[in-house]
Amino acid sequence: MMRLYDYVLSPSCYKVRLMAALAGVSLELRPVDFHPGAEHRGPELLSLNPAGSLPILVDGDLVLTESSAILVYLAGKAASQWLGRASPVDAAREQQWLSFSSRLTTSLGSARLHEMLLRPGDIGALQAAGIAALRELEAGLVEQRLQGRAFLVANAPTVADIACFPYVALAPDGGISLDPYPAIRLWSRALRALPGFIEMPGIHRLHELKPEPLLEPGVV
């Protein structure tokens, strides 16, 4: 089984957990004490990934770092429909948004770590960069919708959507409102309603997907 070096509050690790859940791949989770223990900067983890970042995926002899690469690997192995390879345009768009997703990490992600786990940073600059990235994503999604596509590459989700979704959904953790972005809201909801979707802390269950339970006293 593939082993994921994982931190429960990391949106980048969540990308991998989410992709695996949607693709039906089982992962062995190896929890890393990122906070407060800083285990990702300890000798064992640094020998696997000198960059000191999470996630790390180990599959036999293969060691992969960088969440976008791991998403491509999982999809390629188990769910190739998640790769936007139908045309050169799709392949290029997918790459574009995978690259873009790292800007979400450095802006929205860093704002979140600052506001929530007290990591250093210029919060004003991080939030401004986050808002610029959200506006870019919103514009891209509007154009996709105008062409009849609900997701970033096509009318079906790809690894690009999974790469962008977590930091966007958790932007409010870093003090950045999602209220001004209707297209992002629709896209986010479409992803959250996918069969097999799993949450992470900060992303609530879509309770409306479940019917109202018949409540009777004493069912406890």
């Binding site: 209707p182 809201r185 629709l186 909801r189 409306e208």
Partner: peptide, 21 residues
């Protein structure tokens, strides 16, 4: 406050009026 198309059936969104959200 919003485009009809942006308020799907079975969803809630924040909207802004003079009194606030």
């Amino acid at each position: 406050v919003a485009l009809s198309a942006d308020v799907l059936a079975g969803t809630v969104i924040p909207a802004r009026v003079s009194a606030g959200i």
